[in-house]
Amino acid sequence: MHNKAKLTGLDERGRDSIKTIASIMYFINLQVIIFDVLIRQIFLKQDYHDFEDLAVIIVFNALVFLIAVFWKGGITIPRFNMLTIGAVYVAILIIGSLLGVLIGRFSGWGGYWPYLGRVAGVSAILLCIYILAAWLGNRRMNKLSEEQ
């Protein structure tokens, strides 16, 4: 009967506390980075290359976090509803379009369509990755929870 972790010597209460604090701090940190990027982009009108590293960190975090949540069964999606997926995709496109207009990173409406194309393409790829992760995670959970 040993409840302490071998490496850290923490018992379950210690581990629980650290997990909770780490989760809260993770979200606070991510929100602060996002806020920082938006300030630089909208108000300070900085060039994209000035905060490209932060943008990459945000995308990496969002991507890995959601994939990990799906894989670990944190969010169980029993069945894919194409209508819901389509609605999510359209919502992402609308938000992306509005942000594009708000930030105005393109010169004239001629530059808007290539921007929208990039938003649509990247969103579709991300959505496909999430769907794959959710499907694999759901399959994994079903296998683990099968009656022996």
């Binding site: 009967m1 040993h2 409840n3 302490k4 018992d11 379950e12 209460r13 210690g14």
Partner: peptide
């Protein structure tokens, strides 16, 4: 010590 936890955990 018997169960591999901290005294604080038992107290709580």
């Amino acid at each position: 010590a018997a169960i591999g936890a901290t005294r604080q955990t038992i107290g709580l």
